[in-house]
């Protein structure tokens, strides 16, 4: 059986990571910002799993599992913050939360 080359995994991973990064830069809604972040994390997961398949190891999959767990944490905390912001400010757009402007 023919193995899938590592380059293919890495290409897909890089593409999705770039798209997620682009989404992080251009999205205005805070919830969609977080979703773009999830895309980035998944791209990293693809790279891990692909490397595993190429090398014949399982460590990458274990780290992928850790990343999934941490993504869950990140989503929980991030969405909690968003809800808090919405509750105090009645806004959910990132351009309305610019207290750090110089």
């Amino acid at each position: 059986m023919t193995a899938i080359p590592l380059e293919a995994f890495l290409t897909v991973s890089g593409l999705i990571f770039g798209i997620g990064m682009f989404g992080l830069i251009v999205r205005r809604n805070l919830i969609t910002l977080l979703m773009s972040l999830e895309l980035c994390l998944n791209a990293v997961n693809i790279a891990f799993v692909g490397a595993d398949a190429h090398l014949g190891l399982v460590e990458g999959q274990i780290f992928a599992l850790f990343i999934i767990a941490l993504a869950a944490v990140e989503a929980a905390v991030g969405l909690g913050i968003i809800i808090a912001i919405f509750r105090y400010r009645k806004v959910e757009s990132s351009d309305e939360v610019r207290d750090m402007r110089g």
Partner: peptide, 15 residues
């Protein structure tokens, strides 16, 4: 797993 627990508590506290 501890981090998950912390995240849960934090999310509840913040939200």
């Amino acid at each position: 797993s501890l981090v998950l627990l912390m995240g849960m508590i934090g999310a509840v506290l913040i939200g």
